[in-house]
Design a protein around this nucleic acid. Sequence first.
RNA 1: GGGGCUGUAGCUCAGCUGGUUAGAGUGCCGGUCUGUCACACCGGAGGUCGCGGGUUCGAGCCCCGUCAGCCCCGCCA
Length: 587
Amino acid sequence: MSRTTWRTHRCGALRAEHVGQWVRLGGWVHRRRDLGGIVFLDLRDRDGLVQVAFGPGWSPPDVLVAAGALGSETVVVVEGQIVVRPASARNPEMATGDVEVHATALVVVGPAETPPIPVARGKTDELPAEELRLKHRHLDLRRPELLANLILRHRLMQRARRTLSELEFLEVETPILTKPTPEGARDYLVPSRLHPGEFYALPQSPQIYKQLLMVAGFDRYFQIARCFRDEDLRYDRQPEFTQIDLEASFVGTEDVYGFVEAVLVALWDEAGHAIERPFPRITWREAMERYGTDKPDLRYEFPIADWTAQVQLLGVPFIEQALRDEARVRGIAVKGGGALSRKDVDQLAEAAKQVGGSGLAWAKRLGDHISGSVAKHFTAEGLGALGVGDGDAALMVVGPDRVTSPVLDRVRMEVIRRLAPAPTRAHAFAWVVDFPLFEPDHETGTPVFAHHPFTSPHPDDVVRLESDPFSCRALHYDAVYNGNELGSGSIRITDPAIQRKVFAHLGLAPGEIEARFGFLLAALQAGTPPHGGFAIGFDRVAMLLAGAGSLRDVIAFPKTTAARALFEGAPAPASPADIAALHIEVK
RNA sequence: GGGGCUGUAGCUCAGCUGGUUAGAGUGCCGGUCUGUCACACCGGAGGUCGCGGGUUCGAGCCCCGUCAGCCCCGCCA
């Protein structure tokens, strides 16, 4: 299979079974060890390394000399015989370490300048700065770790395709040049040359198209879809990213959970992990109450509890003051929290402040001795009533949920990081369900849609849309894994009247609705099956399964946090002529 | 948009309280070496201390600004 005009085998594939064979190899000079009379070369290709030996007993003199002069990362073609290494010279750390190539010919086919960043690294060497790795991406990608990440990514992608195809999903491509959307993330815009003053948008997701495919009767659609969002980046957010996007007709939430679980189980299997279905369910409300987040890490305990009633009785002054309106006292009974040092607690409080908290009240229980910022208000029995045993600690905050939830989420994760308890399981998947349909606007507090405007309200809650919007649930669900959101989906609105109401709720005038979404509304009036779907954040899945520290390590050519491509230098200024042709001006 | 960390040799880093000649490892160049595998040993070259300004007798070090990379908040339907 790997045999070509230029070579007979891949370097990393050679084993004891090849001994005696004449081979021709092509690869990169990974490392060279020149002992004077004998020269060793580690030759590298996609499959790995093999040692090539040049010696006076088998290599012609000119080949021996040439081997001694090879620089790192030079591409060479080598001919020779596979031989067993002397017993004392075997290398059990190399897959090919029982054999070597006795080279009889050597041709430099791709000379290389000394690389600005090393490809071959010592075991303890630090990686070069990320800036340099991105600038010289062709070299960084030669590193076996990065190559392995991208090979895994390839396998995951093939497995997703196969799994969905077997579930009768049809892979359909949708446009990259599309139409701006009214809400959500900022769009990447593409000016139209043919239509002055008009713009395409790159898709934030294929959302509308996949719904149109359901209207068209495709029944089940999927796509490994590129998506674009012009927002600020994070280690797990790139401006262009890949989703495993799917949609199906005549489905309810349970059907979608089944499809998505099938894909996720397959992907984890591909990475060598057996996981169980069905995934447990947790409501959004419960997740927020117990973990302070809609993507809880369920590998660990340390749930958040409401201590308002118990703590109120103690008459702690600053808590009394803060306990008004919708404020509650919420806390975590940290098993083994006695091991947290004063410094640890200070750093927890600091972390709490980073997410908007004002402080962290704490008490440690060691025997009868209570210490901590609110120690004088508590007895051992009082702490015991909160679930704080001997050797444990109580961490608590007071305030409205919108403050205490993110603070306790952060505190909980920091506590887990510091105490490093054994996880209850390695792979904690869950469905987070019953998301609210609305969330309060950050400035005005008025209800705004929490999801995209095609998400169906929960049928049981529709009657309260006007009277009590915040109590209404959406048919929206997230898949969560070890504290990471893997993706989200929903059952869609198929009633054009309801869809119009939702658009109106977004502040769109009837004329605007027709202009922007007339095509969707027309489609919904053309005979629409009930449908819903999901989108899995594929890059994030690849990152987690590769054990990578950032999305950049599972994307061949990623952007920096400033959305620049350092290798090719994008974005870049355009020529005045090109700009003029697009009927736009640059200020 | 806001905050934090980092920026010194090709690469990874050290550089004390501001002090006169800025170091180490590795890579690179030259040499010795026939079983190495991060080969070993000897010698050598290599610096716009990110950039601009300021304070000072004197700045890699202090101050202001700026650029880049990373991390966090906002943002990401």
